[in-house]
Amino acid sequence: MLSIGEFSKICGVSTKTLRYYAEVGLIHPEEINPESGYRYYSIRQLKKMLFINRLKSYHFSLDEIRSLLEWEEDQADERVGRALQRKIGELQQKMDAYAYTMEQMKRDAVQLENGIPMMAYLEHIEVQLVETPPMNLLYTRQLLRVEDYAGGYGPYFSRLYEQVAKKGLTLLGTPITIYHSPEFNPAGNDTEFAIPVMEIVTGTRDFPGGLCAKSVLRGPYSEMTSVHARLREWIENEGFELSKAPYEVYVTNPAESAVPADIVTEVYFPVRKK
């Protein structure tokens, strides 16, 4: 048996962390002396601890690691393999985003060297006044916290597409997100996910068309706040006001775009003259 200090030294994990791992059910001491409270780990637990360390180095959360540890040994390898593939995809997206950010920083640095203000790019975001047609939307409406946004919209749109297939509906467009909350609230925002369909069935609603200020974002979603800011500036300068909730149309699927610069999102702000 190894004392918690010896186990800690071999695995490169502090005794404080080991105690926390025991609290959250990740790895428990093999034995605890009832009189002294000293904790002891077996040699065979070294493999488990190194496995945990390896997954942590792969950016798995403790909850994800605990879930993988709960599987029976004969199913664990297959489960871990699938988890690794998912994590590879997640990390690739982050790497692509970092690469895009790096190029953006380089462009900003060059512009500043040439005497061009860093925020001058806002003036080049084009805005059009368009008349949009009415749509019939298959939708779901959720109160989303900040963590939900970070997790992406995939699960919500996936459920809608499942309904499309189950009910045999005819698609008439790409996914849409409508933002109903009047202000941003980290505790929860009223967000509607929708897909335009032909058939009027349970779970669909009429979405009236109308006059909109429209812009197009070509790039990662992290740039969306700039487009929203430019649209509000344009609306104010042109004597309009927002009439309904703004919405976004995903021309390309962000989850399937290998290069962030290839992502295309249309942004609509319904407006009326003041």
Results as ranks from 00 to 15, higher is better:
K87P: 07
G188H: 06
E103K: 07
G151Q: 15
D108C: 03
A120P: 00
I125Y: 05
A150Q: 11
Q92M: 13
I116R: 15
M102D: 06
A120Q: 08
Y121G: 12
T140V: 13
T101K: 11
F157N: 00
E123M: 15
N189R: 04
A165T: 09
M118L: 11
L138T: 06
K87R: 10
Q104F: 08
G151M: 15
P155L: 01
L84Q: 05
L143M: 12
R107D: 10
V146C: 07
P134M: 07
P186N: 11
A165V: 09
P134H: 13
T101Q: 14
G152A: 08
P134K: 09
G168T: 02
Q93K: 04
I116T: 15
Y100C: 13
G188Q: 03
G89M: 09
Q93C: 06
V110K: 11
P175V: 04
G115D: 00
R159S: 00
M102F: 09
S181R: 05
N114E: 14
M135W: 10
S158T: 08
M105P: 05
R107W: 09
K167R: 13
M135H: 14
K167W: 15
M105I: 12
Y179K: 04
I125F: 01
V130E: 12
G168Y: 00
I178M: 00
T101C: 03
E126K: 04
P182Y: 12
A150W: 08
Y139W: 12
I178G: 00
L171C: 03
G168F: 04
Y156I: 03
V110S: 10
K94H: 13
Y139S: 12
T174S: 12
V110P: 02
A83G: 05
